[in-house]
Simulated assay, not measured.
Amino acid sequence: MDFLHPEYWLGLFGAFAAIGVLVIIFAETGLLFGCILPGDSLLFTAGILTSVNQIGDTEFEKISLPVLLIGGPIAAIAGAQLGHWIGAKYGRKLFDRPDSRIFKKEWVEKAEHYFNRFGPEKAVVIARFVPIVRTFLNPLAGMLGMDAKRFLIWNTIGGIIWTDSLFLLGHWLGNKVPNIDKYIIPGVVVILIISVVPIILEMRKGRKAVK
């Protein structure tokens, strides 16, 4: 399953790696099949390749950091807005399909849980850092009637924070840490843990409120 590894995509796109990264960001946030594409790991690795052009024994095309910092948020915001529009237009029937290899109803239920648990605004931002949820929450927000303009505001905030923070982290570590390729997977794990912390705190606060 090489397509789950960011190195596969970055090598596949070659000299057009920056464009490829933006396309995947758009697809992962705007199209339902995008849930199977790499997200955090791709952004982090792309950020590393703005500093170095080699990961392990493999050489890659160096990527422009300004292109990622500008294009990344635009792709993420545009993709999420498309997802919202799809959800608003097609509604619940969009999600009422049997499980398949690339679609699980539990993923939709998980996204709906975040939306209802944290409220629309927080959910749109938090979902950016949760794999799979960031794909399904956008059309779900449209389906549940979240206003497009209000969605755009929080979508913009979440899109900028998600993409640029991972690009900059990868860029900084690529400059500072020798043999950075050894730390790609641990780095992504740390990012995911940090992303989950505010969710756990919010859930604990909610339990206290119920008590």
Rank of each mutant, 00 (worst) to 15 (best):
T163G: 04
G187R: 08
I193H: 02
D181N: 13
I200Y: 06
W107S: 14
L144K: 15
A76G: 11
I153H: 08
E59C: 10
L173T: 11
S51I: 08
K205L: 04
K122D: 11
I185C: 04
E202M: 09
G119C: 09
R92S: 14
I185F: 10
F26I: 09
L37E: 03
I191P: 08
Y183N: 12
R117Q: 15
E202R: 08
V130P: 05
A148T: 01
G71N: 04
D2K: 07
L166P: 01
S64P: 07
V196Q: 05
I36S: 07
M143I: 00
S100P: 02
H113W: 14
G159L: 07
V21F: 02
L192E: 13
I160L: 00
L168M: 13
V189P: 07
F129T: 06
S41G: 02
H113Y: 14
I199N: 04
Y183M: 14
H84I: 05
F3I: 14
L166E: 02
R204K: 13
D57A: 15
I36T: 07
P73N: 04
P38N: 10
V21C: 04
V190K: 12
F13S: 01
L173S: 06
A17M: 10
L144R: 13
E59Q: 12
S165A: 13
A46C: 07
F103Q: 12
L201R: 00
F95A: 01
G159M: 08
P186L: 03
V133M: 06
A141K: 05
V130D: 00
A80S: 08
G83W: 08
L82Q: 11
Q54A: 12
F26T: 07
A209P: 02
V108M: 04
D57S: 15
K89P: 03
M146E: 12
K149C: 07
D181K: 11
E28W: 06
V130T: 01
A141C: 09
A127Q: 02
A27I: 13
I184M: 02
V23I: 14
W107P: 00
S100N: 13
I55L: 15
V23G: 03
C35W: 04
P186C: 05
G79P: 05
F103E: 11
E121K: 14
R134K: 13
L4A: 09
V188N: 09
T163Y: 03
V196E: 00
G47H: 10
E61W: 13
P131L: 14
P38R: 10
I184E: 01
Y114H: 06
W154A: 04
I70W: 03
L32V: 15
F118Q: 05
H171R: 00
L169W: 09
N53E: 13
K211N: 08
F60Y: 15
Y90T: 01
K62M: 12
D40Q: 13
P186V: 09
I102T: 07
G30T: 10
I25P: 00
V52Q: 12
L137P: 01
V67K: 07
L37I: 07
G20D: 00
V197K: 05
N179S: 14
A123N: 07
S100V: 08
